[in-house]
């Protein structure tokens, strides 16, 4: 069955992310989503490829640019949209918004809006898994900018020291807000830097989703067998502005020609063209139905009771 092939699964996952975020961008001007949104449109290969290599019981740590990881790990789309709409049935009960997606039962650790803060937390989860001798693996998604925080080095050192079951995945889109790597890194050779800590390093310099999957699968298998923690660098390109639904090529911090080169190797098309038109159509319809249902769910969901403002401060 082509519809359950690896290509179909990667296509489905990426398409769901892309279309869900396009819908977010479409809805955004209506003010129904009152929360900053950081879209992954163009970057879907990282989340989709890596999560394809995971088991349901594995765990991912996502960032404020987290719709993609949340969706790819299989957390409920309905609850994500409800969260963006600030509704009580949202994945964080309307208290977190787009930057704090979470779904513990699906193995999605809550995202943080303070860059880098999730990195040691993810390693802490990995420590717990190791202490309890569970075979699960943690994947920690992070941006290229997050590697500049001291806590990144501190965490990878500890992770290797304790052989934690964790794979760090850098969604390397080359920018932190509007600042390119060249203005932030003393050397562009991230992998050499990371390697000195003893992590097993993997690179996907063209962001190809099939390769992302293969590299992630290798790394995860290795970690499950008790190998050293891994580091996977995935080159991707963010098509939209850093935060918000629009494009930003007119403001001049990046080159539109580069964008066009990335669009030419759109990770979704790249996978899609290996599938028959029929399969693509089946998946596309499935995706549209799922998104329409999720938006309707969010629209219809009740607002939180105002008393909820005060609940859950303490456990």
């Amino acid at each position: 069955m082509e519809e359950t092939s690896l290509a179909a699964r990667l296509y489905r996952s990426q398409k769901l992310i892309r279309r869900a975020e396009e819908e977010i961008a479409r809805i955004y001007p209506t003010d129904k989503i009152k929360s900053p949104v950081h879209l992954s449109i163009g970057q879907e290969a990282a989340a989709a490829g890596v999560c394809e290599a995971l088991q349901p019981e594995d765990i991912v740590s996502i960032t404020y640019r987290g719709h993609a990881g949340y969706i790819a790990k299989g957390a409920p789309l309905k609850k994500m949209f409800a969260e963006l709409f600030g509704k009580s049935l949202g994945c964080a009960a309307g208290k977190g918004g787009s930057m704090h997606l979470v779904s513990m039962q699906d193995g999605v650790l809550g995202a943080s809006a303070v860059v880098g803060t999730t990195i040691p937390v993810a390693a802490g989860v990995a420590l717990a898994l190791k202490q309890r001798q569970e075979k699960r693996v943690v994947v920690c998604f992070l941006g290229d900018g997050a590697t500049e925080e001291g806590v990144f080095c501190e965490t990878i050192n500890f992770a290797v020291l304790k052989r934690l079951p964790i794979l760090f995945v850098c969604e390397n889109n080359g920018f932190a807000i509007h600042s390119p790597l060249s203005k932030r890194w003393s050397t562009l050779d991230l992998l050499s830097r990371v390697k000195t800590f003893g992590l097993s390093c993997h690179d996907v310099p063209d962001g190809n989703p099939f390769v992302v999957y293969q590299e992630a699968a290798k790394a995860v298998m290795d970690i499950r067998r008790g190998g050293v923690p891994g580091f996977l660098n995935v080159a991707v390109y963010r098509w939209k502005q850093h935060v918000g639904p629009g494009e930003d090529f007119h403001v001049g911090y990046r080159d539109q020609a580069e964008y066009k080169r990335w669009v030419k190797r759109d990770p979704i098309e790249l996978v899609g063209k290996t599938l028959s038109e029929k399969t693509r159509n089946v998946i596309d319809n499935e995706v549209e139905e799922k998104i329409a249902a999720a938006i309707k769910f969010a629209e219809d969901a009740p607002w939180p009771n105002q008393l909820e403002t005060f609940s859950q401060v303490y456990a």
């Binding site: 600030g86 309307g94 208290k95 918004g97 939180p304 105002q306 909820e308 005060f310 401060v313």
Partner: peptide, 16 residues
């Protein structure tokens, strides 16, 4: 601020 964490939902943020 109310003695709680700042929520994102507009209906809760209003109370905060």
């Amino acid at each position: 601020y109310q003695p709680t964490t700042c929520p994102t939902s507009p209906v809760l943020e209003k109370v905060f």
